[in-house]
């Protein structure tokens, strides 16, 4: 789904841009252009476009301030940016859970609808979407972060571990627990117990 952009744009990888921005801060703008839409999409799916607007701006400000400590061995900056964004999203945790519960309860998603498909004004969610929203609301934050970084950020387990600064084993166990809880709420038989 998500296009890996690390090697695109004339082979200038994210790490090179960040390194260049140490002496020439304006070079950092290219990092923004590469990734802001994707980070916004992730944040908007969690907390709505309005809050996501701020999260995106904050994410790149924080990233800019921390660029000196960026690990140059990681060419793709997406996990780093997703990690910062996830921390910022956490400040909206109560709102996020409230949105999800609203979907579960009313079947109407309170998040703003897409402009392009304005005909689908509100998601009048069917039963399984309501159950899914309920399940997502019921996850603890660490589990939800891992699940959504995998599902929406399209990050690998290692990248999620980098993003959240936790061991990869923790990523596996959180994801497995999140999926198990989802299956339980969605009413699917628990065919395989986690690994």
């Amino acid at each position: 789904m998500a296009v890996r952009r690390a090697g695109s744009a004339g082979d200038v990888v994210d790490a090179d841009l960040i390194a260049a921005s140490l002496s020439d801060p304006d070079r950092f703008a290219a990092l923004f252009e590469r990734h802001h839409a994707e980070i916004h999409r992730y944040a908007a799916r969690r907390i709505g476009t309005d809050a996501a607007d701020d999260v995106v701006a904050e994410t790149f400000l924080v990233a800019f301030r921390r660029r000196r400590v960026y690990d140059p061995a990681r060419p793709d900056a997406r996990p780093w940016l997703y990690g910062i964004a996830t921390t910022l999203v956490a400040r909206h945790r109560r709102a996020e859970v409230r949105h999800l519960r609203a979907v579960a309860r009313t079947g109407v998603d309170p998040l703003p609808e897409p402009m392009a498909e304005r005909v689908v004004r509100r998601v009048a969610a069917q039963e399984h979407e309501r159950a899914l929203a309920r399940a997502l609301a019921g996850l603890n934050r660490g589990d939800r972060d891992v699940l959504l970084l995998v599902a929406w950020g399209d990050l690998s387990y290692q990248e999620v571990a980098d993003a959240l600064d936790v061991p990869i084993g923790t990523v596996r166990s959180r994801l497995s627990r999140a999926r198990r809880k989802l299956r339980a709420v969605l009413g699917a038989p628990e065919e395989n117990t986690h690994g």
Partner: peptide, 10 residues
């Protein structure tokens, strides 16, 4: 299901 949820966010 998770991947499809809110897939049409603006």
């Amino acid at each position: 299901l998770v991947a499809e949820f809110r897939d049409e966010v603006p």
